[in-house]
Design a protein around this nucleic acid. Structure first.
Length: 455
RNA sequence: UCCUCAGUAGCUCAGCGGUAGAGCGGGUGGCUGUUAACCACUAGGUCGUUGGUUCGAACCCAACCUGAGGAGCCA
């Protein structure tokens, strides 16, 4: 008989009749005449309760010695439960596929996220991580839906790249030189020049936007920053749409629309997992998500934001000053205390932003934007790109970059240049926002952070 | 890179200068449909590491390691 998932059984409205389920034992309660076994196969948060009478074949040898974590296959009749769940299974036969050693580390009680991180190979078997990673999968799917429905083309930008800097942080070097040859010149290395893991697919994305109009990337990126916070990882996934014939206004509108779309999709399709997360991880989660899905976001220029911060009674650890980046505490004040909703801050001072952002007519600011959300801070960063050849060239020079290195990027401005814009969305930051999980290491299957690349 | 806090049983923690403890988990047995089941018994620890102070250190001091939180950088 083919396998029925736990989710299929639990969600059926009529009695499903006889079925075979396979999964892992979450808990077992023995009585003299029978045992209750709860199994989970990851198809849903909830477990299926199975009643095994002691009269069943092999009860003494198999069921009695069954431990938490064991994998089993059970065939039986699904019947209405006398307990608090709707359905349960009366086992006709039970097969132990693999018992679990007695030192199985997952108990039938709450564990700290730090401990679970140390057993990242087993943590998807917990309610929390099952919920988080089902949602991660759903959100990835929803991201593709969002862009595909709008006619965006999915582009795979390279993971190994030779163009350095881009102003997006420290890079990991990729090399085949070993301990003996490490002092050799990069000319003799695998690619004939220094190569790195990408920190962003944006520049390559722009080349495709300048041909296919609307594109997006969705893939891993790497930053060798030595940052120790709950919001940074060395390897993370990023979504980067890029649109030709597009200005900053349309760019901001797309970012806001996207966040709303993803939050709505989660509410619609991850109800069971969200209910769990709202109960055990973040009490205000559902309320916040519903709020974000329905309410308009705020927008404020950098200049106005600075003024607003200066006028506020709030005491900040760091001074608010025009021309400086907004500190985390400033961003959080805007989104969490002042507006109490997602806020897009736009038109930043030219000095604090990278070379490719479009200079505004005031000559003091660039057409850049950051979308801030409560609890996380910056979740999206984007800009309209500089499409004017002479201005871009001057910027490259001003930032001490080599125009030769970026000849292909400059070429886009020589052959049919168009206004274009895009943004980057940190996938894990989105997941933190949508799941209420407060540490980035708990929304990525195997986190890589400075000093740690286990599993 | 900087600042702060924490490392005691498999897990969560108490003990804070005088012979190492609890709950949960594990093992064994019992049990009336249980649901983080219940009851009884039981095994389990170089108290993160290395030095120092002391008659005596899990406890005081120093350095280091690991983890967490925050800052910066960013997504």
């Amino acid at each position: 008989m083919s396998r029925t998932t736990v989710a299929q059984i639990l969600r059926s409205s009529n009695s499903p009749g006889s079925a075979t389920v396979k999964g892992w034992v979450r808990t077992k309660r023995d009585s003299k005449a029978f045992s209750f076994i709860e199994i989970n196969d990851g198809s849903s948060l909830a477990n299926l309760q199975i009643i095994v009478d002691a009269t069943i074949d092999g009860y003494e040898t198999s069921v009695h010695s069954l431990r938490t974590g064991a994998s089993i296959a059970v065939e039986g009749e699904v019947v209405a439960s006398q307990g608090k769940q709707k359905w349960e299974m009366q086992a006709a036969s039970l097969m132990v596929l693999g018992n679990s050693d007695e030192d199985y580390p997952l108990q039938k009680k709450g564990h700290s996220p730090e401990f679970l991180r140390s057993i990242a190979h087993l943590r998807p078997r917990t309610n929390l991580f099952g919920a988080v990673f089902r949602m991660r999968s759903r959100m990835a799917y929803a991201i593709h839906n969002f862009f595909q429905q709008r006619g965006f083309v999915y582009v795979h930008t390279p993971i190994i790249t030779a163009s350095d800097c881009e102003g997006a942080g420290e890079m990991f070097r990729v090399t085949t030189l070993d301990g003996k040859t490490l002092d050799k010149s990069p000319d003799e290395d695998f690619f004939g020049k220094p190569a790195y893991l990408t920190v962003s697919g944006q520049l390559e994305g722009e080349t495709f936007a300048c041909a296919l109009s609307n594109i997006y990337t969705f893939g891993p990126t790497f930053r060798a920053e030595n940052s120790h916070t709950s919001r940074h990882a060395s390897e993370f996934w990023m979504i980067e749409p890029e649109m030709a014939f597009c200005d900053l206004q349309e760019d901001m509108a797309l970012a806001e629309e996207m966040i709303k779309y993803l939050v709505s999709d989660a509410l619609e399709n991850c109800a069971e997992d969200l209910e769990f997360l709202g109960k055990f991880v973040d009490k205000g989660l559902l309320e916040r998500l519903k709020f974000v899905a329905t309410r308009d976001f705020e927008r404020i220029s950098y200049t106005d934001a600075v003024e607003l911060l200066l006028k506020s009674d709030k005491k900040f650890e760091y001074k608010v000053e025009y021309g400086h980046n907004l500190q985390s505490e400033h961003e959080r004040y805007l989104t969490e205390e002042h507006f109490k909703c997602p806020v897009t801050v736009y038109d930043y001072p030219v000095e604090i932003k990278p070379f490719y952002m479009r200079r505004n007519d005031d000559e003091k600011t660039v057409a850049a934007m950051d979308l801030l959300v409560p609890g996380i801070g910056e979740i999206v960063g984007g800009s309209q790109r500089e499409e004017r050849l002479d201005v871009l060239r001057a910027n490259i020079k001003h930032h001490d970059l080599s125009e030769e290195e970026y000849y292909w990027y400059v070429d886009l401005r020589r052959y049919g240049s168009v206004p274009h814009a895009g943004f980057g969305l940190g996938f894990e930051r989105l997941l933190m926002f949508v799941t209420g999980v407060s540490n980035i290491r708990d929304v990525i299957p195997f986190p890589r952070v400075p000093g740690s690349a286990e599993f």
